[in-house]
Design a protein around this nucleic acid. Structure first.
Lengths: 207, 207
DNA sequence: CGGCGAGAAATTATAGATAATTTTGAATTT
DNA sequence: AAATTCAAAATTATCTATAATTTCTCGCCG
C-alpha cells in the first residue's frame, strides 16, 4: 500500500537523488552521468533520464542538451529569491488555511515546534520545521500551491544544509510560537506578517 | 542559433503537446498513449515519455504509474487557485522589476496593450496580454520566479481558451493602462494592487 | 439478465543496442 | 612553449526489443 508514489524505478531514483542533493552529499556543479547512476541503482539509463526531467523541473539540476546534467548551483541571490517566493506563497496558503485550522492542528504544530527545540542537529531541526509549516498550510486545500511551496522548501533546505549556515538559532522557533499565538487569537494579519518575515530568515547572510 | 531550447526531440514533442493542451485541441481528461504520439512525431516512445515528465511538472498532464497519462482536467477551484498564485507572484515580480523599468519598456508595454485592443480573436488577445506581463515583469531578474509565473500563465491561458469564457471584455485592457499610469507616476503600491486584481479577473465565473 | 473470471490484446515500463555528439589527448605546426 | 588539428574515447540521445501490468472481451455461472 506504500506504492502509489515511488512505484516506478524512475520515481525512486528521482527521490534518492533529490535527497542527496538537498543534503549536500552531491555537491553543486557536480556532473551526473546517466550510466554511472544507472549502474549504481542497478537499472538502465532510461529511468534515470526520466528522473532527471523531474529534478530539472524542481530546479535541483540543470541540463544542457547533449552535454549532460549537473547539480544546480545557487548563489545568494537565488536563496533570497526562493525565500521571497516562499513568503508570498506561504502567506497566501495561510490565509486560505486559517478558516480550517482546528485546535487539534494548532496543538500538533506546537508539538512540532517543541520537537524543533529539542533537535540535536540541523537535519532534525529541518524535519520539525517542515512539519510545522506543513501542518498549518495543508488545510488550505490548494494542491498546486502546496506543491510549489514544497519545491521551494526543498531549495531552502539545500541552503540550510550547505554549510553556509552552520548555526541555526532560536529566533525561528520564537516565530513559530508567535504565529500560533496570533492564529489562536484570530489575528490572521499578524500571523501572516510574522510568517513572511520568518520564511525570509533563511535568506539572510550568515556569519 | 535557435537551437538551445528545442534541440532534443523530447523538448520539441513536449512543446508541441503543451501548445495543443493550452489551445484546447487536446481535451482535458483525454488519454495520451505514448506509442500513438511517438508514431505521430516519427519518433520512438522514449523521448515521448521524457516530454511527459516535463508536462507533468507543469501541471498540464497527470500521470498514474503504469496506467498512462491524461490531459489534466481543471475545475473552477483550480482556476481560482492559479489566479491567486499569479497575483501573489506577479506582484512580487513587479516590486522587484519596478526600479529597472525604463520609459522605453513602458512604451513597449503600452504598445502591447494597443495590440490587445486591436486583437480579433482570443488567441491574438492572449498573445498581447502575455507580452504585456512579460515586458513589465522580466526586468525583475529573478529567473525561478519568472519560470513559475510562466507556468501559471499557461494554466490561465488554458482556461481562457476552454470556452468557459467565450467573451473577453475591455476591463483588462483598462487595467493595463492603469498599471502603466501608476508605474509612470511612481505609485508602485497602486500598480501592484491593480495588477493583483487584474490577474484574478480570469478567475471570475463567466456568463 | 447481470456479475465474474480467464485469457487475449493493448499499453506501460525497463532493458539492451545503436547512432550522434562532445570531450579528451596526443601529435604537429608555428 | 603555445596553439591547433584530428582521431579515439566517453557520453548523451534515440531506437528497437522485451518484460510486466492493465484493460478488454467473451463465455460461463448464479
Amino acid at each position: 500500500m506504500t506504492k502509489s508514489k515511488d512505484d516506478t524505478i524512475a520515481a525512486r531514483i528521482g527521490k534518492a537523488l533529490a535527497d542527496r542533493i538537498i543534503a549536500g552529499t552531491l555537491e553543486p556543479g557536480s556532473r551526473l552521468g546517466q550510466d554511472h547512476i544507472a549502474e549504481e541503482f542497478g537499472a538502465s539509463h532510461v529511468p534515470v533520464r526520466e528522473a532527471f526531467r523531474r529534478l530539472e523541473a524542481q530546479g535541483l539540476v540543470v541540463s544542457e542538451p547533449r552535454r549532460g546534467v549537473r547539480v544546480a548551483s545557487f548563489s545568494m541571490a537565488d536563496v533570497k529569491e526562493v525565500a521571497e517566493m516562499r513568503a508570498a506563497l506561504e502567506v497566501l496558503a495561510l490565509r486560505h488555511a486559517a478558516p480550517h485550522l482546528t485546535p487539534a492542528i494548532l496543538d500538533a504544530a506546537e508539538e512540532a515546534t517543541r520537537a524543533g527545540d529539542k533537535a540535536g542537529d540541523v537535519q532534525a531541526w529541518e524535519d520539525a520545521n517542515r512539519n510545522f509549516h506543513r501542518l498549518i498550510l495543508n488545510p488550505c486545500g490548494m494542491p498546486r500551491l502546496l506543491a510549489s511551496i514544497a519545491d521551494l522548501h526543498m531549495a531552502s533546505a539545500r541552503f540550510l544544509f550547505s554549510g553556509w549556515r552552520a548555526e541555526w538559532d532560536a529566533p525561528t522557533d520564537r516565530d513559530h510560537r508567535a504565529i500560533l499565538d496570533a492564529l489562536r487569537a484570530g489575528k490572521l494579519d499578524v500571523a501572516a506578517s510574522v510568517l513572511a518575515r520568518h520564511v525570509q530568515w533563511v535568506g539572510r547572510k550568515p556569519r
